[in-house]
Simulated assay, not measured.
Amino acid sequence: MNSPIFTAAPRLTTERLILDAYTLNDFDAVAAMSADPQVMRYIGGGAGRDREESWGRLLRYIGHWQLLGYGYWAVREKHGGQFIGSLGFANYQRDITPALEAPEMGWLLCSAAQGKGYATEALRAVLAWGKTALPGGRTQCIISPHNQPSIKLAHKLGFRETHRAEYHQQTVLVMEQTF
């Protein structure tokens, strides 16, 4: 049986942002963001990632669109085109109990872009896209219970905590939003 082949991420625009498909040219920006310990402080033990891990991240971002028809967008400022982050939906096949049952939403913003309302603006556009494009009518996310800014953002976007789980020997909040 052949799997369907999908295309790249559709372009979404907001008042201040462009959400676009990743390209090879985005690798250095992804690597720089992923190496920043401030950006990664609540993810996977809190250390920055090396270029090898960032390369795998970029390939996953692009591959999700090709295989599943959803994935992550590169987030850029409309004025000047500066890369400021990554966000979207994924299926990471996480070893978490109970298993996630819907596309997982996630977000990362460069340190300089945090605290400006960009995440809220971009995630609202992505959720609007997801309401018509995602299977199952819902999305989930996992967040460290110490990551108060992301928890606050998730609540603002309509997510609610469903339970806590262990993931890589760390407790995470599992949150969900239905469309």
Rank of each mutant, 00 (worst) to 15 (best):
R164S: 09
G81H: 09
G63I: 03
S150K: 00
P103E: 10
P103A: 12
G45L: 09
G88V: 07
I43A: 08
L24Y: 04
V75P: 02
F179Q: 12
R49Q: 14
L173N: 13
I143L: 08
D26Q: 02
L67M: 10
G85N: 06
G45M: 10
K78Y: 07
C110W: 00
R41I: 01
Q93F: 09
G88F: 15
V172E: 12
G158K: 02
R11P: 13
A125I: 05
V126I: 10
H163A: 06
L87M: 14
G158D: 07
A21K: 09
F6T: 14
Q169G: 15
G106M: 03
G85R: 09
S111Q: 06
S144T: 11
E104R: 12
N2I: 03
S86A: 08
G88W: 08
S86Y: 04
L12R: 15
P37G: 14
A31N: 03
L68D: 10
G71M: 07
W65Q: 03
P103C: 12
Q66Y: 15
A29W: 09
H155I: 07
P37M: 09
V172C: 14
L100H: 13
H146P: 01
P135R: 05
A125V: 06
R51V: 13
T7C: 11
L59P: 02
G88E: 00
H168Q: 12
C110T: 08
Q82W: 06
R41D: 01
F6G: 10
Y72S: 06
E53V: 12
E52P: 00
G88R: 15
E77Y: 05
Q82P: 11
N147P: 07
G136R: 01
V39R: 09
V172D: 11
V172L: 13
R94F: 00
I143H: 10
G88C: 13
Q66D: 14
D26P: 01
Y118L: 08
Y61S: 05
C141I: 08
G158R: 04
G85S: 03
S86D: 10
R160M: 12
Q114D: 06
N25C: 08
P145C: 03
E15C: 06
G158W: 03
E53N: 14
Y92K: 08
F89I: 04
H146T: 09
T139Y: 06
I96C: 01
W107A: 03
A165P: 11
K116Q: 02
L123Y: 00
C110S: 05
G136E: 12
G45W: 08
G137R: 15
S3N: 14
R164I: 04
A29C: 02
D28K: 07
T139H: 01
T23P: 01
Y22W: 05
R57A: 11
L157I: 02
M1N: 10
R138G: 11
L19A: 14
S3I: 04
Y22A: 07
P98K: 02
T7H: 14
D26L: 00
I151C: 06
D28G: 10
F179A: 13
E166K: 12
